[in-house]
């Protein structure tokens, strides 16, 4: 940070292009106080939660169908792998044409970005449930939905959690890209504002916020979830 500050002061580049640490922190602080950054954070997270939730639900359902029916596996299963390799932002032009440049288009990109990973993780989680557990449950008379609820889902929880984690990361990236290009506020849009106003201090502030939120979600929420499961299962 000292090197950053010194480099900024000494360099011949104008400060609006390469602001120093102190200036960035000041903008960050002011942005949080006057609500410019805080508002954007809430807007972005709100969108993310909606898109992420939809993606998780759709992913679980698709994952179940692929696991359960061979025909779905042969058709949709392959398609999902193909779709997963498309970066989600590629969907934006299509989304803009379908839904117009706005909330729905961004939500669509966020959801699409997370759905396929979630689907793939759910499928492989379900497929990797040891036959032994299923046999045990069946000898006790479990079948159908009961088997799914009491054995298949609990047994694939570790894989589902890592699916959630990946899905979160994918939708977070999709959200930023979507907001950057699309309209309607949020952190990504604030970045774009910063660029057009030539306020690199604002741009860097937003980047810091993005990094902080990403780290918090990954380290606090998902790592803790994973650790809890591992402890309960005796894996760690």
């Amino acid at each position: 940070m000292v090197i950053w500050e010194v480099a900024s002061r000494l360099s011949t580049v104008p400060t609006f292009m390469f602001p120093g640490v102190l200036q960035v922190l000041e903008t960050l602080f002011n942005g949080i106080i006057n609500g410019q950054i805080t508002g954007a954070i809430f807007q972005s997270i709100g969108r993310l939660l909606v898109g992420f939730t939809i993606a998780v639900i759709v992913g679980l359902i698709l994952g179940y169908l692929i696991w359960r029916y061979k025909l779905v596996d042969d058709t949709l299963g392959f398609l999902v792998v193909a779709l997963q390799s498309i970066p989600s932002i590629v969907w934006l032009p299509l989304a803009i044409v379908w839904f117009g440049l706005g909330e729905t288009a961004i939500l669509f990109v966020v959801t699409i970005g997370a759905t396929w990973t979630m689907t793939m993780n759910t499928t492989s989680g379900f497929k990797n449930v040891p036959t032994l557990y299923q046999r045990v449950a069946r000898t006790y008379g479990s079948s159908g939905f009961h088997l799914l609820r009491t054995v298949i889902i609990p047994a694939s929880i570790p894989q589902i959690i890592s699916g959630l984690r990946l899905a979160w990361a994918f939708s977070w990236r999709a959200l930023m890209a979507g907001e950057l290009l699309g309209a309607g506020g949020g952190l990504g849009h604030l970045l774009e504002t910063g660029r057009s106003l030539g306020q690199m201090d604002l741009v860097i502030s937003v980047m810091i916020i993005i990094a902080i939120i990403g780290t918090i979600m990954d380290n606090v929420v998902f790592t803790r979830l994973e650790k809890n499961v591992q402890k309960k299962w005796g894996l760690s």
Binding site: L132, Y133, R135, V136, T139, G141, V151, P154, W233
Partner: peptide
């Protein structure tokens, strides 16, 4: 079909680790 009147004890214990 399998039924609770004929219970199997498997070679591995087969306990559910989440319970």
């Amino acid at each position: 079909k399998p039924g609770p009147d004929r219970v199997v004890v498997f070679q591995e214990d087969g306990l559910f680790p989440w319970l």
